[in-house]
């Protein structure tokens, strides 16, 4: 009798926990695909599959590591990273909503990037760096083929050329400064424009993150 009662409570608790879990997932998906009053859907710009768009104005985020996504959203909120688009959006989200969104985006299956030609100079810089200018190989921190090294080093594989080039410019000019230890600001100041373009082409051609 007592055992049956305990069993009943456990079944109900599991049901509740499952529902809460599903709700978090649904919240993330709804926010991502539909947004909410006063907030555009993430998918409007980043694409339903998180593949990014508009010539790299909107980065590929689908399948990116959760810790990296969470830090960027937090930095948009705190002002450590500045974006006219993202700062007001993040300001409207509760911490719980951000967690749901991050989990949803991180779990998206990375989609094939728009095809890009491989780039010999880009590959050389990614795998061997440009030590004569103090620039370490990108892959040493971002993982082989740009697969990423969580929690701090995001995946670059399949990232859009335009976005990568834009971020290099932001790191170079100081418009973006939320990189740990200033690692990327250093790199950006020591590569030429054509080298940056080569690296960007190389990583877009690397296909899938993760």
């Amino acid at each position: 009798m007592a055992a049956g009662w305990i069993k009943g409570v456990m079944v109900i608790m599991i049901a509740i926990l499952t529902a809460v879990d599903c709700r978090a997932e649904v919240t993330g998906r709804l926010l991502f695909e539909r947004g909410m009053p006063g907030m555009r859907a993430c998918a409007d710009c980043h694409g339903k599959d998180g593949a990014g768009g508009n010539d790299g104005r909107y980065p590929k985020i689908g399948g990116q590591f959760d810790a990296y996504l969470a830090k960027q959203l937090e930095d948009f909120r705190s002002g450590a990273r500045h974006s006219l688009v993202m700062t007001p959006i993040v300001g409207r989200l509760s911490p719980g909503q951000i967690r749901s969104l991050v989990a949803y985006v991180a779990a998206l299956e990375p989609v094939p990037a728009p095809t890009a030609e491989g780039d010999a100079l880009g590959r050389e810089l990614a795998t061997h760096g440009k030590w004569s200018a103090g620039v370490a190989p990108c892959d040493k921190c971002h993982g082989s083929g740009g697969a990423g090294v969580p929690p701090h080093f995001p995946a670059l594989a399949g990232q859009r050329i335009g976005y990568t080039m834009w971020m290099f410019e932001a790191f170079r000019s100081g418009a973006r400064r939320n990189d740990p230890l200033g690692l990327m600001q250093h790199v950006a100041k020591h590569l030429s424009e054509s080298e940056v373009a080569a690296v960007a082409r190389h990583y877009q051609a690397q296909g899938q993150g993760r």
Partner: peptide, 18 residues
């Protein structure tokens, strides 16, 4: 950041990135 606060490095797919 790279070596971990416990100094045990950072693994990715079974290999040590750091």
């Amino acid at each position: 950041l790279c070596h971990g606060s416990d100094g045990q490095g950072t693994r990715r797919d079974g290999r040590y990135a750091f």
